[in-house]
Design a protein around this nucleic acid. Structure first.
Lengths: 118, 118
DNA sequence: GCGATATATAACCGAATAGAGATATAACTG
DNA sequence: CAGTTATATCTCTATTCGGTTATATATCGC
């Protein structure tokens, strides 16, 4: 999976909205375009970007080309992000520590002038 | 948090590498630039993009402007992706079903003719 | 076959982007 | 102060992007 293409495709709000719609099932191009006040070629372009990133696939149903969401690149992006989970959880831990420390300091010496680092 | 800016910033391999490096701690601009065969202004531009997306912050240490990773946008991106977790887990379930079905069919009719498309 | 519908492609435009090089700013060093 | 180091900013160019309109292709229904 190509993270460049995946993240780049996800960087556009129209494309994220398209994916959100497709999360509920297959939708044709015209039906996808309807809520967006965009021309049909513009939507087709977005779909091409999503398809190139592997985020959607398309089948044939008469004159329609229904789009289906493909989860693999989303999972790959998620895996990449997971490596950083530790960091934001750690930051929250630090924030919790800080708040706890402040509370204790305030309780212990309510009118003490502020110190910087410990 | 702005998902457009976040995903857009993550869509570049240089910037993802910078974040990976920063995951281990603060690093100055020159030290960040070293492994990349990029000019210093190019690296500064990438840092500007990351900073604008809230993915890094910078402090002052003498002549250095050390960069630090900020986890909040990563967490926001992760939250967005999490909404689709169900989909890829479901797909794996489908794949498992399919493989199971194929195995059973193969056992039942070992020499079923295959169709080919052109 | 013809006409209608669904979608794709081509040609174009303006704004944004990534890179380079040159220069400017800011802080340390002697 | 001058010189060096670290970083930012300006200017330029080439490319990409998101949109448009116009046109082409594919499939249906008759």
């Amino acid at each position: 999976m190509n993270l460049d293409a995946t993240f780049s495709a996800l960087a556009d709000p129209t494309r994220r909205a398209i994916l959100a719609r497709l999360a509920e099932g297959e939708v044709s191009v015209m039906d996808l375009a309807a809520p967006f006040a965009l021309s049909q070629p513009a939507v087709s372009k977005h779909l091409r970007v999503l398809e190139h990133a592997g985020l959607i696939s398309r089948s044939r149903d008469g004159q329609r080309r229904p789009c289906r969401i493909e989860a693999a690149p989303l999972e790959a992006a998620n895996s990449w992000l997971e490596r950083y989970r530790e960091i934001w959880e750690q930051n929250y831990a630090r924030l919790d520590d800080l708040l706890e420390t402040m509370k204790q300091e305030a309780a212990a010496e309510p009118s003490k002038p502020k110190r910087k680092k410990k």
